[in-house]
């Protein structure tokens, strides 16, 4: 039965690790910057080893690089600076150059003349619009209107959400009109991505390797983004928590 015993490491990982109520990183950051505006999180963080440590790491990151740095830190920063060209490719001089039309408009006299011309065209346009709408009544029906422009809207995850009794075999969500593609992200509470997939359907099957990572009492987050055929985001679920409940028989 040795393999079934909890080793000290496993025990500590569980006890010091994240729990169901642990806030996300954004929530933790908002707590750190806005103080007591979110008392329920503040209360939780006070008694949670994992959140206290996360908060410390976040604060240490925000403080890093400012104030007094050790010689080694300065060296590392200087080395990184030297490699900036590997991170930021040099600008294409042709593209970076100001386009001709911008230079044209930047000339004072031309800018004024262009403005006057724009006003004239706007007045003419408004006049033409009124003339055509009075002469011919508008047609009813969708054929005249172009495709409906949707802002990125919220939609819901149908399952899994909240506490679930069985390891989910798939993720299902509300269909979003105009969505051609969905991106599904499965994350840990610290936003570490466990799995990512794309589909055209309003559901997706979880592969066995992913299902095996959904363990009892561990909160996971789902986030689904919907995109239209041009690749523009038309909907998002935001972060949705779910957790597999403990099975009383221990499986």
């Amino acid at each position: 039965m040795l393999n079934n015993r909890a080793t000290e490491s496993e025990l500590f990982q569980n006890a010091f690790g994240p729990g169901v109520d642990c806030p996300t990183l954004e929530e933790l950051e908002s707590l750190a910057s806005r103080g007591n505006s979110q008392p329920h999180f503040a209360e939780h963080v006070k008694s949670c080893a994992y959140c206290q440590t996360e908060l410390h790491l976040l604060k240490s990151f925000e403080a890093a690089g400012s104030g007094e740095m050790s010689r080694e830190e300065i060296k590392a920063a200087a080395l990184l600076q030297k490699r900036s060209h590997e991170i930021l490719p040099p600008q294409d001089s042709d593209e970076a150059r100001e386009p001709w039309w911008k230079a044209w408009f930047s000339m004072r006299g031309m800018a004024q003349a262009s403005f006057a011309l724009a006003v004239l065209l706007a007045v003419a346009g408004v006049g033409l619009y009124y003339r055509t709408t009075i002469q011919s009544p508008s047609l009813n029906g969708s054929s005249q209107a172009g495709p409906e422009v949707l802002r990125s809207a919220a939609f819901a995850v149908i399952s899994p959400s909240g506490d679930v009794n069985q390891t989910p075999s798939e993720v299902r969500w509300e269909k979003v009109p105009n969505a051609a593609n969905y991106q599904v992200h499965l994350l840990e509470v610290d936003r570490n991505e466990l799995w990512k997939a794309e589909t055209k359907e309003d559901h997706i099957v979880l592969p066995p390797a992913v299902r095996s990572r959904i363990v009892p009492a561990k909160t996971l987050l789902l986030e689904i983004d919907a995109y239209d055929s041009s690749g523009s985001k038309v909907g998002e679920t935001g972060l949705v928590r779910f957790r597999l409940l403990q099975n009383r028989d221990g499986h």
Binding site: S60, A64, G65, A76, L79, L80
Partner: peptide, 15 residues
């Protein structure tokens, strides 16, 4: 963005 945060990231990575 790189100029603002390079020292922060390098220093944190050194830790």
């Amino acid at each position: 963005l790189f100029q603002r945060h390079s020292a922060r990231v390098a220093s944190w990575c050194y830790h």
